[in-house]
């Protein structure tokens, strides 16, 4: 199961080794290795189609890799299986929010707690209210997602994921679908999570956020990890021409 991976290390939240993934004939991931320590904040960036989203969707088993191994909190991800335990220990936030439209914000936050974590209704509501307050939308708890702004919806989605009390949070371009004036409110929540020591793996184009909270930037291109460095080094002296080009393009239009 875990050949290719060293013995489980208690300090690692996520380990991946030799990941290869094809969609039909297109190879989305090429031999990707990744190790994330507990409490570490990783930002993954790169041009579109470079495999960033595919990589983090593999980490909680939303996509299955044809080759390679993944271990989360020392537990191997079984390909093709449901991996419910692992999924419950990793929270995920999506570009398109993916709140359940037929449930209120509060119900969005309690459903998986009650059904998957087997918490009592009262306990689930209490936890949901705690995290909704934390992302500052407790006053919207009774509303339906369609009644909220994009920024509020994304914060509700973050609260929903936090309710599962995950050790690691995955963010898949959480601000890409938002109007500019709403990006900050979501990033603020993410910054405060980082300050609390949450293990975070974020795919994002928000370079200001990356500079501020990332311990390490991972730059991907054409399914490979091309460059890996702390932000101060990555932004000031990128080692590869591909990363240099990417930074020139993204920073010339970056207002943050």
């Amino acid at each position: 199961m875990t050949e290719g991976l060293p013995p489980a290390d208690q300090n690692l939240a996520v380990e991946a080794s030799g990941l290869c993934k094809w969609f039909k004939k297109f190879q989305a991931l090429r031999d990707v290795d990744l190790q994330v320590r507990r409490g570490e904040r990783i930002v993954i960036c790169g041009p579109s189609g470079s495999g960033k989203s595919t990589l983090i969707r593999c980490l909680n088993g939303l996509e299955t890799c044809q080759q390679g191994q993944i271990r989360v909190n020392g537990r191997a991800l079984a390909p093709g299986k449901n991996n419910l335990e692992i999924r419950r220990s990793i929270g995920m936030v999506f570009q398109s929010f993916n709140l359940f439209p037929h449930l209120s914000v509060l119900q969005n936050c309690t459903l998986a707690q009650v059904r998957a974590q087997k918490r009592s209704k009262e306990e689930a509501v209490e936890i949901a209210r705690h995290y909704l307050a934390r992302v500052k939308i407790i006053d919207q708890a009774g509303k339906f997602p369609s009644q909220l702004s994009g920024g509020q919806q994304q914060r509700a989605a973050i609260a929903r994921a936090l309710c599962m009390k995950p050790g690691t949070m995955l963010f898949d371009e959480p601000t890409s679908a938002l109007d500019p004036e709403m990006i900050k409110e979501v990033l603020d929540v993410m910054v405060s999570l980082a300050e609390d020591g949450m293990t975070m793996i974020c795919v994002t184009h928000e370079m200001g956020f990356a500079r501020k909270v990332a311990d390490r930037i991972i730059f991907m291109d054409e399914g490979r990890i091309v460059e890996e460095a702390p932000p101060e080094i990555f932004f000031s002296s990128p080692q590869t021409r591909r990363a240099q080009l990417f930074l020139d393009q993204i920073l010339s239009s970056d207002v943050h």
Binding site: N82, R87, M92, A112
Partner: peptide, 9 residues
Amino acid sequence: DAAKALGLS
């Protein structure tokens, strides 16, 4: 995706 990521069966 969201249901899966939350660990719902």
